[in-house]
Design a protein around this nucleic acid. Structure first.
Lengths: 198, 198
DNA sequence: TGCGAAGCGGAACGGTGTTCCGTAACATCT
DNA sequence: AGATGTTACGGAACACCGTTCCGCTTCGCA
């Protein structure tokens, strides 16, 4: 549950108790603030909610981006882990569609983050990699299992589908079922040509 | 070619000559700066290039967002107008695919703008409407014509497809053909079920 | 319990978007 | 053309934000 940012080689120094407390408080406060005010919320709003000074934040997260990244990773993990139970409880194609929907929900809370990702800030460099690292195997597994039923084509790169769904979902502002319909269109695209190729 | 921002009811007052000069210079400078440094470029960079003071900019574009919106509209028009010649020179389905590709190129230059659009700034409120107002009829026409050949399904809402393509294209950072492939997937989705319905 | 190191708060810094206002340029009427 | 009221101009000043700095406190170990 705890977290030590910037874990270079090994964490050679023990984390002092008050420092760990600050880190936890900051991550919790940041998650709340990001959820309610978006990732562009002023840093002072986070430090105020956490009841710490600005210096404390920057000691543990040298760049504002590092804090965002830390919060992000936690939520990526939660979404990726959801795939296992879906696969256990549903038919392959349903599990695939279901997880895509779950993934859609995850992405929907990330408004404003895509902008940050493409800002060129090197602090975000590791995020897309982590995103792929966790999600590509998950979606790849669902896709393979579904393809083996023959009801879905087998020539889809998980990474492509992942990005497509994410990109379609992220900017959906006044979503009156738009995301649902496009997701359905993509799944139809998957079904098209299910008969050819292996 | 000229432009008078904020045209409320009627433009009841003539625009003074020096003011029109400032507006034109600012729009030109802004277009260049946005293209080279993105929409997040400092205002002072634009005023410097235009050779005007900050007060002049804010007199004509009360919010930074108003300037962005004005530049944006010009380029929307250019892209929408491209559809006519495509429709005249290609088969319906090719014209459709061709314009989607052209549209893709337009969107690709708008990185960072999507972030602005979803920032909640009321100054951008009219942009999506203008975007739809210009593009939906254009894509709708291409879609109808293509559907009448029977090689494309007829139950697609132009607005859905428009947003889907835009959303897929906008965040494409390291595009190694990703956009192309997803676009193809969407067009396959259009072909799927072309036989059923009218 | 004493002491060096790590952590803490918050004032201060540099840079940004935006406002303000004295001055200059324009359009109109005589 | 000259006078005059209105509109626009430039750039210094303001408010806010991310980030840095540093004197003081707290922690962990012997």
């Amino acid at each position: 549950m705890n977290e030590q940012p910037k874990g270079e080689g090994q964490p050679r120094r023990r984390v002092r108790a008050d420092a760990q407390r600050s880190i936890d408080t900051l991550l919790a406060a940041a998650a709340e603030v990001f959820a309610s005010s978006g990732v562009d919320a002023p840093v002072r709003e986070i430090t105020a909610r956490a009841g710490v000074g600005a210096g404390t934040l920057y000691r543990h997260f040298p760049q504002r981006a590092d804090l965002i990244a830390a919060v992000f990773r936690r939520e990526v993990d939660a979404c990726a882990d959801a795939a296992a139970s879906l696969a256990a409880e549903h038919e392959p194609v349903d599990a695939l569609a279901g997880w895509l929907r779950r993934f859609t929900g995850f992405i929907a809370t990330k408004r404003g983050l895509s902008a940050a990702l493409h800002s060129g800030d090197p602090a975000y460099d590791s995020l897309p990699a982590y995103f792929d690292e966790r999600f590509v195997p998950v979606l790849g597994g669902l896709l393979d299992t579904a393809a083996r039923t023959g009801r879905i084509r087998a020539d889809i790169d998980p990474k492509d589908l992942l990005r497509a769904v994410a990109n379609v979902t992220l900017p959906a502002q006044d979503d009156d079922g738009h995301t649902e319909r496009v997701l359905a269109l993509l799944v139809d695209g998957l079904r098209y040509g299910a008969s050819r190729a292996s």
